[in-house]
């Protein structure tokens, strides 16, 4: 079976990163504080990449991603804490229910475009949050206590799976169909692409991995509360994707890593963090609206030498 070179590079890279970090943890060099930042980083990468497939690939402007994260967090917590199911089952359940929520939200809303879609997704995310706020079974506003069960291994495996699935989807006829919608929906339709189908598929896959991220989050922080998943959280995720470059998977990963580190350093100055975030967001939009990477991937930076044959 032939696999692309990029796949092998990615696999080796992933193994090396895992081995090094696991070694540092076992050797006691990375204490709990740093382990926690690493898990947080993994969760943010998953959120960023899962929104990337919706906004960056398919061009559908969703600003309610935290809603699906909440679904994943709550349903996985119900599975492990209330039903006593093992953690992997809980994570899977959280992701699948989030995907179903994505499907249900996506079918009616994805016929809307641009600003209207954005505001509708935000509305749905708020409705999801308000539902959890009002259900006593999951603790209402006080939240739900969840045991800390995830480890760096779970979080990293989540990242690897997210990236492989979304990258494989993108580099296929299905991904091209989705990208053609971003580029020109009318032309995509005229070329035989079932645009509604691919929008819903991308939205559902995005929701699935947002749910997985939420499920890992729930089992890492002892408590989940509805306020955690408000639209500020959605904006946070949006910032990763926009800053990294709409359409660039590696860009959103880099932005998620970078901003996790920045906010860890500014953890004691949350206002300063938000001011810096918002200024960066405004400046990037004004001076480099394509984000850090544009639609390019980091791998293309190494290909310049080989190409360049055809000049127009």
């Amino acid at each position: 079976m032939k696999k692309s070179k990029a796949f092998w590079v990615f696999s080796v890279l992933a193994l090396v990163i895992y081995a090094v970090v696991q070694g540092l943890i076992s050797g006691g060099i990375l204490d709990l504080y740093y382990q926690n930042i690493l898990v947080q980083m993994c969760i943010n990468i998953m959120l960023a990449v899962s929104l990337h497939i919706i906004i960056g690939i398919t061009g559908q402007f969703s600003i309610g991603h935290a809603g699906f994260m909440a679904v994943g967090a709550y349903f996985s917590a119900i599975a492990t804490m209330k039903l006593g199911l093992p953690l992997p089952v809980g994570l899977l359940l959280g992701a699948v229910v989030a995907a179903l929520a994505g499907l249900l939200v996506g079918i009616p809303t994805l016929r809307l475009k641009g600003d209207y879609l954005a505001i509708a997704t935000l509305g749905f995310a708020e409705i999801i949050r308000i539902i959890f706020l009002n259900v006593d079974y999951v603790g209402g506003a006080a939240g739900m206590v969840v045991m800390n069960m995830t480890t760096w291994t779970y979080a990293f495996a989540g990242v690897v799976i997210t990236i492989i699935v979304i990258s494989n989807f993108t580099k296929s006829r299905h991904g091209r169909g989705a990208i053609s919608i971003r580029e020109d929906e009318i032309a995509a339709d005229a070329m035989g692409i079932n645009t509604t189908y691919y929008k819903v598929v991308a939205f559902t896959i995005g929701s699935l991995f947002a749910g997985l991220a939420g499920a890992i989050y729930a089992h890492n922080f002892f408590i989940i509360q509805p306020t955690t998943f408000n639209f500020l959280k959605s904006f946070d995720i949006l910032i990763y994707v926009v800053l990294g470059g709409l359409g660039s998977l590696s860009g959103s990963v880099i932005a998620a890593i970078f901003l996790t580190v920045v906010s860890a350093y500014l953890a004691n100055f949350p206002e300063t963090r938000m001011i810096i975030y918002s200024l960066v967001l405004i400046l990037v939009m004004l001076y480099r609206p394509t984000g850090l990477m544009g639609t390019k991937e980091i791998t293309s930076l190494f290909k310049f030498g080989k190409k360049g044959g055809t000049k127009i």
Binding site: I63, F235, V242, I275, S278, L281, M285
Partner: peptide
Amino acid sequence: ITAIGVSLL
């Protein structure tokens, strides 16, 4: 996105 940024700022 700029409008969201201004709002947060």
